[in-house]
Design a protein around this nucleic acid. Structure first.
Lengths: 135, 135
DNA sequence: CTGGATCCGTACCGATACTG
DNA sequence: CAGTATCGGTACGGATCCAG
């Protein structure tokens, strides 16, 4: 897959922190989505993941690599490519399920929030949702 | 469902922090599992959720309540019951999917960890897994 | 019994600056 | 290009003590 990743692949403000379902850290789910179509370079990943710093993206990728979801390949020309392992690819199923759930219940989530007992914070909800949510 | 929740409903040490899939905060997924069979009292929930302090469990329940997954009912005898709302119940689908995934790939997860590049920490993996994993 | 209040350690995440 | 080093803010989670 050589077509560049769209800058607006993920909604940045909209449904964030709405779905309670998360995959790994804040960016892991989105990274997996980005790698769905094939290997990607480090800087390619930074396009749709707007705002992520190199440090944080590196940390997320290291975690995914360590857990066997992603394989890192360094080329002689100093570029690096990341791709999903079979195990990482197997995450796409649950990921799709989570996205489908979020899309289906987004309305209710919003309603619950605005009707919610004021002041009360959610536990650890996170990860971008519907628009093209990764998790 | 009046049968008490089993103390060993969740493995406590074994597969924890292995699956990258989380529902809400650390306990939210397990709480939802506990409420699957019907309303439960606060102290009932503390049985399978060994080690959780009252404060933390309360916080988790408040979050679930705020987000519309759980309804809280206080009785005159000072006991409190929590039950899943329809929205909360809808989480059982993705939850099952996550558990199935974890059960299926538990082996690979363990392998990846022990073969993992030493010293490298995972991003935000968490929540008990297979044994009877909630998330 | 069901929490609330407080203190505190740790993890995560971001910004900035620097490097092979 | 693909990171690393450092610093700091914040949120989460646990321990302990206290209260309606």
């Amino acid at each position: 897959m050589r077509t560049p990743l769209p800058v607006d692949m993920f909604d940045e403000v909209c449904p964030s922190d709405l779905t309670p379902i998360r995959f790994g850290d804040k960016w892991a789910g989105m990274v997996v989505r980005c790698l769905e179509g094939g290997p990607r370079r480090f800087s390619e990943l930074r396009v749709p993941l707007r705002g992520v710093t190199a440090k944080v993206l590196t940390a997320s990728l290291r975690g995914l690599e360590r857990d066997g979801f992603v394989r890192r390949t360094a080329h002689p020309d100093r570029t690096v490519e990341y791709e999903l392992t079979p195990l990482g690819r197997s995450l796409l199923g649950p990921l799709d399920a989570a996205c489908a759930w979020a899309a289906e219940h987004w309305e209710e989530l919003l309603d619950a929030r605005e009707a919610g007992v004021s002041g009360r914070r959610s536990p650890a909800a996170a990860s971008p949702g519907p628009g093209r949510g990764p998790a």
